[in-house]
C-alpha cells in the first residue's frame, strides 16, 4: 500500500484527484490539506510515501513547503500553470501534472512512482528549488522552520547570511534563523546588486552598511547599522566597492 497526501487549496481540485484515485487500489489517501502549513504537519504526523502537491497556495507555496520537509518523500506536482514549472519539475519531482489532467496521465505518473519506488532524493529536490528560485523573479522571501514554528523572512529584512557547516545562519533584526542550505545558493539566487559575497563566510545586504574601515594593511571591515562588524576578504572588498560604485 502506498500512503499518499493531497495538498491543494482548491477543494474541487482535491475532489477531482480523489475521484481519479478511487480505482487505484494500492493508493491510500491518508489526509487532505488546504495549505503548506497543514501539509507540513500532516507529513510529520503520517509520514506518507507520496504527496500530490499544488504550487500556488496560501502563504507559502509548494516549493517553499517542500524545502522544509526533512525526510525523503515522493512528490507529484499538480499545477494549473507555471512559467518555471516544466524546467523545475524535470530536475526533481517524480512527475508533474498540468491541470486539468486526465486519469490516464495520472496513471502514468503513479506507474513512474511505483517503478522507481524511490522517494525523490533530497539532492534532486534541492536542484528543483535552485531552478525554481532562478526562474522565479518574485523570490523575495525565505521560509525557515524553527522547531515547530514556520517563519517567512522577507529578503529585504535580511542583514546578512553566514555560512555554518551544512547550514546557513540568516541574520535579521528579529534574530537569527538556521536553514539547511549553502551560501553559494543564496549568492546565486538573491539579487546581486543587493547581496554581495564579502567573505567566504558572509553574504551581506549592502543596504545595511554604514561604513567600511581599514583596520590594518589590506584588511577591511564593514560596519553595519547595528554596529556589528564583519570582515571583508580582499576580493570581497573589491566586489563591494564595485557594487557600491565607489
Amino acid at each position: 500500500m502506498i500512503t499518499a497526501l493531497l495538498i491543494d487549496d482548491e477543494p474541487l481540485a482535491r475532489r477531482a484527484l480523489k475521484e481519479y484515485l478511487k480505482t487505484s487500489v494500492d493508493i491510500e489517501i491518508i489526509a487532505e490539506c488546504n495549505d503548506g502549513f497543514e501539509g507540513l504537519r500532516a507529513i510529520q504526523k503520517h509520514q506518507p510515501q507520496l504527496i500530490f502537491l499544488d504550487i500556488q497556495m496560501p502563504k507559502i507555496n509548494g516549493f517553499e513547503m517542500l524545502e522544509l520537509v526533512e525526510q525523503p518523500i515522493g512528490v507529484i506536482f499538480t499545477t494549473a500553470f507555471d512559467e518555471f514549472a516544466l524546467k523545475a519539475f524535470e530536475a526533481g519531482a517524480v512527475d508533474y501534472l498540468l491541470k486539468p489532467f486526465s486519469k490516464e496521465r495520472l496513471e502514468k505518473a503513479l506507474e513512474k512512482f511505483r517503478n522507481a519506488n524511490a522517494p525523490t532524493e533530497n539532492e534532486k529536490v534541492k536542484k528543483t528549488l535552485e531552478f525554481a528560485s532562478q526562474e522565479n523573479n518574485e523570490s523575495n522571501r525565505i521560509v525557515v522552520k524553527n522547531g515547530a514554528e514556520i517563519k517567512i523572512i522577507a529578503v529585504s529584512d535580511i542583514h546578512y547570511i553566514e555560512a555554518y557547516d551544512d547550514y546557513v545562519k540568516i541574520h535579521t533584526k528579529a534574530g537569527m534563523s538556521l536553514k539547511k542550505q549553502t551560501l553559494q545558493f543564496y549568492e546565486n539566487s538573491l539579487n546581486p546588486s543587493q547581496f554581495v559575497r564579502i567573505h567566504r563566510s558572509y553574504l551581506l545586504n549592502i543596504t545595511e552598511i554604514t561604513k567600511i574601515e581599514l583596520v590594518e594593511k589590506d584588511q577591511h571591515i564593514a560596519i553595519l547599522k547595528n554596529n556589528q562588524k564583519l570582515p571583508l576578504s580582499r576580493s570581497g572588498y573589491l566586489k563591494l566597492k564595485e557594487t557600491l560604485g565607489v
Partner: peptide, 18 residues
C-alpha cells in the same frame, strides 16, 4: 490569467462526474 483559466477548467473537470 492562465492560472485562473486552467484552475477553472480543472474545477469543471472535478464537477462533471458528481
Amino acid at each position: 490569467q492562465p492560472h485562473f483559466l486552467f484552475n477553472s477548467l480543472n474545477s469543471i473537470n472535478a464537477l462533471i462526474p458528481y
